[in-house]
Design a protein around this nucleic acid. Structure first.
Lengths: 122, 122
DNA sequence: TGTTGACTTAGAGCGCGCTCTAACCCCTAG
DNA sequence: CTAGGGGTTAGAGCGCGCTCTAAGTCAACA
């Protein structure tokens, strides 16, 4: 699979895939004899995982940390689990924040929508 | 209340408060005779509201849109309600995404934590 | 009266995560 | 044989949301 095909299948742009390779977020791809990247379908699983980390707000530098541990093999598994668990805890806390904000925005916005010239205090 | 005090009370930096004024996100503050901004406590309610929009991921350009409608007074209330409702819908969808991702990260990570040299396919 | 420290402005700089450009190469279809 | 549509690289540029700098003003206190 060449980069255009991977872009279609993964939802990333070819630009982004090359960028991720450059910074070390996805492994250096084998090149075919004309120098083009040639991907195995298994890369999609890794990209999907990265995508979930991204969706849940993990910064690239942390994904790089995870990717580096992964490159070092099974010996780093405990550390990777710990990293993920800390991330999940942050995400759960963020979800709680979002829900709390949503709740306020549902129930308080009438008062807060009034123009500045009126009294906005509770 | 001067800007330093407002910064402490609102959690924003003085830099950010000035920036928000410059771009029109908070109203132009009255200046005392030495030219320093002098805030009324009611500004805190607006800043807290903005903060909730920010926490829930609304981009500044949309907050500016809301702020502009607010400046135009009560006539724009329906439009502001609609804007907020669209935002809340996006936030609810995002929360659902986060929860779905969390669920996968809880239950699938053992497989995905293995190094590249192993078979990562399901 | 001098010194500290909080304030003012316009505008530059930064970290993030891409996104695109320029100049080039290679393969295949017509 | 040539045109088109993919790919390659290094490096520049962009949109976002601040964050800071420089140079200056002002008020309060020892």
């Amino acid at each position: 699979m060449k980069i255009g095909e991977l872009a279609k299948r993964s939802g990333l742009s070819a630009y982004t895939i090359r960028y991720y390779e450059r910074i070390g977020l996805i492994p250096y791809a084998d090149r075919c004899r004309s120098g083009h990247r040639d991907y195995d379908a298994s890369i999609l699983v890794w990209i999907q995982f990265l995508d979930r980390l991204k969706t849940t707000g993990m910064p690239i530098r942390d994904m790089l940390h995870y990717a580096a541990l992964r490159e070092r093999g099974p010996a780093t598994e405990a550390e990777r689990q710990a990293l993920l668990e800390r991330h999940r805890a942050k995400v759960r806390a963020h979800v709680d924040d979002l829900i709390a904000c949503l709740d306020v925005l549902e129930h308080q916005d009438r008062r807060l929508c009034r123009p500045t010239t009126e009294d906005d205090r509770p």
